[in-house]
Each structure stands twice: as structure tokens, then as C-alpha cells.
Design a protein around this nucleic acid. Structure first.
Lengths: 194, 194
DNA sequence: TACTTTTTTGAACTAAGTTTAAAAATTAAA
DNA sequence: TTTAATTTTTAAACTTAGTTCAAAAAAGTA
């Protein structure tokens, strides 16, 4: 009983990892069930033993990636001192994700293009959890007078929106390195908050 | 000759309008050729007499919408006086589009999720044309010392990115009206530029 | 009216997601 | 260790949406 459940769990994770890999390469639409299965030397039919359908599989990929991202952000909140410093680190982390996990990130930020009604709600909850970490730091910064701003929620959405946009134009061979972008964005975003 | 060409042109426009309508309602994926045709009391096969394939049809929808948007922006540049005022108006217009033409806007801002290599280039050119209008005003504002900023291109991408993001969370029944949002965004974005 | 060209159609084809009955592999029992 | 039960995988069939195509219908022309 216990053993076979672990085995099935392991298999699910393997499939999720394969799917994450292929979605990262090709995006949701072009990642076919066949290719995801082939990666593991299976046939696509087998995937339906573990997942209800493609949407369910990708949903669980989504969960895995977003949970990791939240954990990573959380660490930054715990470590740094001033709220400005915390936020700078969070901005850097977010930009890193936006650039390096582009396709998966895409599903996370625009879930409505991928998922249907019933899956959308838990996704939006997780996303709010992520955004809430930024809110925490912004509100704390307002309390300590590091930031002065009337609309913290909108400011946060400006922050995330502008950062999410980076992956639309970022070019690894462009004139700016990731580090430079992280620096510039952190600076400009703090101008909004101050 | 002339007459029949006009007739065919008219028909193409009808199809494009039908497609724009349905894409606006359902997004690219869920807008089927069948439904687009049915709207005009045709069968889907007929569409292929006028357009090479779905991508081509949607591409031409894209062109039509983006050309209109550029024209509208251009008018704001011509009318207003200071660069700050121009930019405020442009921001308001952009936000209006982002909210009211959500699905079509989506295709425009994330064309890589919809189009393939060969169609992508002309699309990116048009998009640059649109973005270029913002650059114009930002650079003019730097010259007149209305704005002080080292990275005008990145600032522009922050502007557009944060505005494009609005449609992800905007809710017509939420606590902020479009007009309030336009005002707040214009204010916050100018904090970045100043 | 008869002929030609344009437009539309409906059926067939393809590709990808999904279902399913049966085969294969694994596990448990005798 | 053989047999039976259960789990897992498969291959084929099915569905849906995009696409192609030959033929029919409609429109235009002489």
C-alpha cells in the first residue's frame, strides 16, 4: 500500500519534470503529450493513468514551480535587514525567474490562457500568495517611512507587471546583462515607492 | 477587375471583423474557424479562399487593430503641449486599450504565443512603431528637462510592461474605475521618469 | 442562352488530445 | 514456484479543429 503509493508518486514527479522541461523549451501549446511521454520512454496513453488530462498535468507542473518560487522569495524576506534591501533582493529574484524560466513563468503569470475555470481558482490563490510577499515588504516599508505611497497594491502591481514584461524583450546577447537589469529595475521601482 | 477586387477586399474585411469579435470574446485558441465562418453564414472551408490559414487571418486582425491603436496614439502626440501632458494622455489611451480589448491586446503584446517565425517579424516591427511613439515623447521630455533619467528605453519598457499587466487583474466591478487607474498609473509612471 | 470564371461547399485528411479494451508486468497468495 | 489478482502500459480507435481539394453552385460575360 504505502510502497506502491510512493512509487506512483515518484512516477508522477518524473512526468511533471519531463513536462516542465518540454514546456520550458516550447511553451504549453507545442508541448505535446507524446513528447512528454517519449522523454520517459512511455507512450502518451500512459500519462492518462497518472493525470486526468493535459491541463491537469500542466497544472501540477505549475504548482511545483510556483511553490519553489515562493520558497525562494520567502528566504530573501527572512534574511535581509531594511525593507528596501529586502525588496531589492526580491526584485532581483523575480527578474531571474522571469528570464530563465520564461515559458513556465508565462503560464504562471497568464494562467487564463492555459487553464480553464475550475483550475484557475487555486492558481490565482497561489499567485496571490506570491504577490502577498511583496505586499508584506512594501507595507512594512511604509510603516518605517522607507516608502511613501498611497496605493501600495497598485504599486506592487506596477512592480510585478513591469518585471514580468522583461521576458518579452530580454535578449541574452543584448547590451545589458541580467545583473545590470536587476540593478536598474530595482532603482526605478524604488523611485515609484519613495 | 477593379470591382471584383473591391468585393474580395470587402469580404476579407468582413471576415477579419468577425474574427476580431470572436477572438476578443474567447482568445486565439478558442476562436475556431468554424465559428468565425458561421458568424458570416459561411462554412469554414470558404475562409481558406481568402486567407492562407488561421494564423494568416489572425495576423491580419492583428495588423488592423494595431494600426488603429497607433493612429490613435499619434493623435495625442500631435495635440497636447508639454511632454508630460502628452505622456499622460498616451498612458491613458494605452490603459483603455489594455482593458477594453483584452484578448486582442493579448495577441498584440504576446505575439510569440500565437504566431510563428515568419509572421513574427512584421509584427515586432509594428510593435516597435507603437513603442517608438512613447520613446519620442520620453526623449523629448529629457531634452526639455521635464524628465531626468539615464535609461529611457528601459523606462519605456517599465511603462508599457506595468500597463500591459493591468488586464491581468483588472475587474470592472473592482474598487477602482478606469479613470482612477489611468490617473494613478500616470502619476506613478512619471515618478519613474522624473 | 451558353460559356467562363469566381466562390462556396462538403467530404476527406491530419494532428493532437482523449478513451478504452486488452496485453504485459508486477505483486500477492496458495 | 505456480497461479491468481492487481497494477501499469500499450496500441488502436475516437474526437475535435485546422487544412485541402474536387466538384457544385453562383456570378459574370459574350
Amino acid at each position: 500500500m504505502k510502497l506502491s503509493e510512493k512509487k506512483i508518486q515518484k512516477k508522477k514527479e518524473d512526468i511533471i519534470l519531463s513536462a516542465v522541461k518540454i514546456v520550458n523549451e516550447k511553451g504549453y501549446q507545442k508541448a505535446t503529450m507524446e513528447e512528454i511521454a517519449a522523454e520517459l520512454l512511455m507512450t502518451k496513453g500512459s500519462l492518462y493513468y497518472y493525470f486526468k488530462n493535459k491541463e491537469d498535468l500542466i497544472f501540477q507542473c505549475h504548482e511545483m514551480v510556483l511553490v519553489q518560487a515562493i520558497e525562494e522569495l520567502q528566504q530573501h524576506i527572512n534574511v535581509k535587514q531594511s525593507n528596501e534591501e529586502k525588496l531589492r533582493e526580491m526584485i532581483k529574484t523575480h527578474i531571474q525567474y522571469a528570464i530563465e524560466k520564461k515559458e513556465m513563468f508565462n503560464m504562471i503569470i497568464k494562467p487564463d490562457q492555459t487553464f480553464s475555470e475550475d483550475q484557475l481558482n487555486p492558481i490565482l490563490l497561489k499567485r496571490n500568495e506570491y504577490a502577498g510577499l511583496f505586499d508584506q515588504v512594501i507595507l512594512a516599508g511604509i510603516k518605517t517611512a522607507e516608502f511613501t505611497i498611497d496605493e501600495p497594491k497598485i504599486a506592487r502591481m506596477i512592480l510585478l507587471g513591469s518585471m514580468n514584461w522583461i521576458q518579452q524583450w530580454y535578449n541574452p546577447f543584448g547590451s545589458k546583462t541580467i545583473e545590470e537589469l536587476q540593478q536598474i529595475y530595482a532603482d526605478y521601482m524604488l523611485k515609484v515607492l519613495k
